[in-house]
Design a protein around this nucleic acid. Sequence first.
DNA 1: TATCTAATTTAATAAATATCTAATTTAAAT
DNA 2: ATTTAAATTAGATATTTATTAAATTAGATA
Lengths: 199, 199
Amino acid sequence: MQLDKVVNYHKALADPTRIKMLILLADGELNGQVLAEKLYVTPATITHHATKLREASLINERRDKNTIYFSLNDYFIKNNANATANLIYRSADAGMSDLGDNHKRLKESVLKNFFTAEGRLRSIPVQLKKKLIVFEQLISKLDKGRKYSEKEINEFIKSYHDDFATIRREFIMHQYMFRENEIYELNPPEMWASWEALA
Amino acid sequence: MQLDKVVNYHKALADPTRIKMLILLADGELNGQVLAEKLYVTPATITHHATKLREASLINERRDKNTIYFSLNDYFIKNNANATANLIYRSADAGMSDLGDNHKRLKESVLKNFFTAEGRLRSIPVQLKKKLIVFEQLISKLDKGRKYSEKEINEFIKSYHDDFATIRREFIMHQYMFRENEIYELNPPEMWASWEALA
DNA sequence: TATCTAATTTAATAAATATCTAATTTAAAT
DNA sequence: ATTTAAATTAGATATTTATTAAATTAGATA
């Protein structure tokens, strides 16, 4: 269940000292001593908070001699927020209606640029919006209601892109599929992390 | 200071029972008794959580006779998430000349400050937004459609900055270029992780 | 080897918080 | 005016968590 993940993400951000740490790190990497000084707490406290931020994937670390430098993990800070709305609204109006022209155009452009003429995936988009378009294109090739073994899923993804592990993980993360006892199955579209939540 | 607001927002979502309440409410309004029953807690507990959710503007209430019906406040659930990233990224560098203006101004400022008169890159910006501006400036000097060897790419980057390895890696990471069999080539701009995603 | 430095762990404490039961309030309905 | 149903408040308890001082670890460096 990803409930815990969402809760932990918010717990990580539910403390003023940790938010201040992130604000400081937005200016560039800093080590524990410096953070402690700027925030008027002891290094032990920084270690404590760094652990929580690390567990939520909000920071990265780099060691240089005895010093550990912390920096932001941009990706997770930006994208985890969506996971919350997606979790809450999974059954809500993911319906048709206002598929704006913009999105239609973006979709065309993404499908054209990220897929080869043979239909292979060139690379995984970095921008979430585009990534979801790509994933939904792949997902549309799977059968609703059918149960897939992990091996089958891997083979399926590999027919589009070599990095099947990443993509398989993201399929779960964005709730296109769910896994139970090593068996994978599509979720209903209402549960997908579709682009509409991102406006 | 909006720090408290952001912290409170995350505190409100940092509890599994409250997230479950919101998930239930996504299907439509419910009163306290029903919520208590579905979540296996007492009405008093629901009152407690409702107070926190109300303080974070995540729910609305409507009274009908003796019954109070709770419902989601869509607006705040969808929009407060951005406030966090904004707080983290915006309040950094508050002293510099790029205060929340349009992108054109920021771009001018970045190009002016991060490049020498001779066009060399002084340093790699830490802030993602600025970093992408710098990268796009470099990328604009490469030829679309042309195939580059790794050595050529290294030489090209070195003409701007000594740390060619980092920059080359980031070119790939942010999808300005792709690499195949040691050959580098520009991606179309639609694939770039451009600044627009960060607003 | 001994020493220095940054970070972590440990143990203790104080504050915050999630939950319950029991009592109280609110606003009908009888 | 009494009764009833839903919600809130108050008080108690157990858990979590933010913080610190002190001890320990992990890497340099002399």
